[in-house]
């Protein structure tokens, strides 16, 4: 089974996202900020990361840049999932190594559509 790391400082968002990715037949792990996510990736790289932008301790974009410098850190498919919905944020995310980008609010259809764009489902 593929593993998806859900990174968001909102427990509610993590819970909603978990239910959606589990329906898509992923094992779900959770992290509440970029540092926790990085620690989790160092223990074992997930297949996918669903990534919030604004979080305490370490934000999503800093996590992404750090992840891509890790050994094997080029492998996980990273899908941003954030309220930042302007073109400059999208462009910065893609430049920094994101694979897809979801603008909140999201639902199961959007996650499934975006995961299929990047070959996860």
């Amino acid at each position: 089974m593929k593993r998806c790391l859900i990174v968001d400082d909102s427990r509610v968002v993590r819970k909603v996202a978990r239910r959606i990715v589990e329906d898509l037949r992923f094992d779900a792990d959770e992290a509440a900020d970029g540092q926790q996510a990085l620690d989790s990736c160092r223990r074992g790289m997930p297949d996918a990361v669903l990534l919030d932008w604004n979080m305490p301790v370490m934000n999503g974009i800093d996590f992404l840049r750090a992840l891509r410098r890790e050994p094997g850190g080029d492998r996980p498919v990273v899908v941003f999932c954030t309220t930042e919905n302007d073109m400059s944020h999208i462009a910065e995310a893609m430049r920094s190594g994101a694979n897809e980008y979801i603008m909140k609010p999201f639902d199961s259809e959007i996650i499934e559509s975006k995961f299929s764009e990047v070959g996860l489902v």
């Binding site: 919905n85 897809e100 980008y101 259809e109 559509s113």
Partner: peptide, 20 residues
Amino acid sequence: TQFEVQRGLPIQMLMHYFTQ
């Protein structure tokens, strides 16, 4: 709408062909 451009459309195409 934001919802419509996230169904079926890859983000690269959104960046290339759309403006907000």
